[in-house]
Simulated scan of single mutants.
Amino acid sequence: MNPWLATIPVFLIAATGAVLLAKRWRKSAFKILMAVNVAVMVGALALLASALTAGPAVAAGVAPAAAAAAVATPGAGGAALIAAAIAVAGSSIGAAFAVAYTGSAALAAMSERPEIFGRAMVVVGLAEGIAIYGLIIAIILIGKA
């Protein structure tokens, strides 16, 4: 079973607990939820720091010379993967803002002049291209990892 699918019940229980907490204690629920969010964020940053500083794993029964030959720069692959994730996330967020603004402007312009539909969709498509550029950069970075 995929480990991400196993976390769905945990998220559902956490969301239900947050809603019940917000209904029961309206004034202090925000402070409690923020404290929980900060604790989870600190844990995630600690996990990230330990993953980036950890050395490569060595299988049991491998000769030390072969293990030493397999060791490259520790953490370089992980850093490339994190950089790929940042490239995709940043370009997707940028594309979302661009499509939001250009899409609303295109709809407003098409409501006045319906014949500019083609030109308006080209502008929206160019805004969506930002996300594709980030995806291409991520593929290049993953190939280097």
Rank of each mutant, 00 (worst) to 15 (best):
K23L: 15
V38H: 04
A138F: 02
A120L: 04
A54C: 00
V10S: 07
P3Y: 11
V71Y: 01
I8C: 08
M34E: 10
A66R: 08
A70C: 03
A105F: 03
A67V: 10
A76F: 10
I86N: 04
V123D: 06
A72N: 11
A131Q: 10
A46W: 13
L81Y: 08
V19Y: 15
G43K: 03
A39W: 05
P9F: 07
E128W: 03
R113T: 11
A138D: 00
L21G: 03
F117Y: 08
V42Y: 07
A100W: 09
G125N: 04
F97G: 00
L21H: 02
R26L: 11
T73S: 07
E115A: 14
V40A: 15
A67E: 05
L107S: 13
V36P: 02
A87H: 05
G61S: 04
M41L: 15
A138M: 01
A6K: 12
V71S: 13
V36R: 01
R113V: 11
G134L: 01
A100P: 02
A14E: 07
A49N: 04
G143K: 06
R113W: 01
F11N: 00
E115S: 14
P64K: 10
P114M: 07
A44I: 12
S28K: 09
A46G: 10
A105Y: 06
A63N: 15
S28W: 10
S111D: 12
R113N: 15
I86K: 12
V38I: 15
A65R: 08
L52C: 00
A127L: 02
M1P: 05
